[in-house]
Design a protein around this nucleic acid. Structure first.
Lengths: 228, 228
DNA sequence: GCGCGACATTAGTCTTGACGAACGTCACAA
DNA sequence: TTGTGACGTTCGTCAAGACTAATGTCGCGC
């Protein structure tokens, strides 16, 4: 089959993000994610189905085929390597590299990607804590919980920061608060009634609504001091 | 005006390359350079003329306006910075960076370009010896001669290697022969009748036809030892 | 069982950037 | 003066990828 166009790659990536476990994704979800009209999605899904990259049962959503998933993971890999490069080598800010990587992932040749990867010593994680698939597309599974789902007294380590906010404003905010991969967090208090979280992040207090934590994924610590 | 599309940028760059002194460029020359049909060129020139980037007198060729030239130089700047980056930072081969830079020049943001430029300490020349325009688009003028135009006994320093050969095969060949920017060359013999050039490149003998030197630009040395 | 609303799909259009075919235009030669 | 050929331009078309408007289809409530 032909090389994929940029749009095709974007659809595959979105399908992967919305249905990573091979679950079906609704046309409208895709349309929303890609900021595109539903008819455009239907049209593109037909094309991708013709290329055996997705399975598209009319009115039952779409799911990636094995080939489609492989392609999607390859794009994710490129994205994460590029983000890591932009931060580690070019010194750009953590919060503002997403859009650049989003563009470059479609236009960088394998040769250049490999050179970048080599230069950095084949990193395993990007600056936001996401795991970088290896060349074969393997991705070590990892069970993380949303920080907002923890109960009072819980302790956890921040592992991934997910954010699709344009301009990375929330990322910048989180960074200022110390909410970055590796940070240790203690949930001091959860007041459901007024939706307030009181955290201790690497020793500093941090108060926020649950909205403001959406996208911060942690690895809970199953330890003794739970009851506090 | 809107941001330029990739095609528009390519047309401007080609116009700049073919008529750097503001001279008019024929439709057919552009078509040939861009590997596109003449009607496509006419069409695009009309669009660029509407945006005041080129002046297009029907049947009299096209020339860049001041605005068009400024855009073209900006693209050339990006290209050269990227080539330098690919060689100096990523360690790619001199001969194989052209195509990658050709793509990336259209997709890298100002922010990333600036970071790359800064990382390298604002280089003045790219790996092939081309001068890199500064941010304002200024380009120090430089008078170079084709190596193939020198007479027997002439001495010169290689300054620029121009090559549009896909895959950079000639670049690789020249590099193996020592024909790189900075190399000192002496024309040992020119036999016009069978089109043979006998050179001494940094002390090594190198024999070639004039075709094989097309694109090697030198700065002749006006010195005493001319008559040899 | 019928209707209504949510959602998906079909149908037709637009824009960009390319193409080939056909038609001008112009300079030079006979 | 009139060809003739080179070159440029006009015109109609295509493909990708988006859109809007219109049309299906399904499931749920009554």
């Amino acid at each position: 089959m032909q090389a994929l166009t940029r749009s095709e790659q974007d659809y595959l990536k979105a399908l992967y993000a919305l249905g990573p476990e091979g679950g079906a994704v609704a046309t409208s979800r895709l349309a929303e994610r890609l900021a595109v009209s539903p008819p455009s999605v239907t049209h593109m899904l037909a094309k991708l189905a013709a290329g055996r990259l997705v399975a598209h049962a009319p009115r039952a959503g779409a799911r990636l085929t094995t080939r489609g998933r492989r392609q999607a993971i390859e794009i994710v890999r490129r994205h994460r390597i590029l983000e890591t490069f932009l931060v580690r080598v070019l010194g750009l800010d953590w919060a503002e590299v997403h859009e650049d990587a989003e563009v470059l992932e479609h236009h960088i040749s394998d040769r250049v990607l490999d050179a970048v990867d080599r230069l950095m010593g084949h990193p395993r994680e990007d600056p936001h804590g996401h795991l970088i698939p290896d060349r074969a597309g393997r991705l070590r599974p990892r069970a993380l919980a949303p920080l907002g789902s923890l109960a009072r007294g819980a302790r956890a380590t921040v592992r991934e920061i997910r954010d699709r906010d344009p301009g990375g404003r929330r990322l910048a905010h989180w960074k200022r608060s110390g909410l970055v991969p590796g940070a240790e967090v203690v949930v001091r208090d959860v007041r459901e009634i007024d939706d307030v979280f009181e955290l201790e992040v690497s020793g500093r207090r941090f108060v926020t609504g649950s909205e403001g934590l959406d996208g911060v994924m942690v690895e809970p610590r199953k330890e003794a001091g739970r009851g506090h």
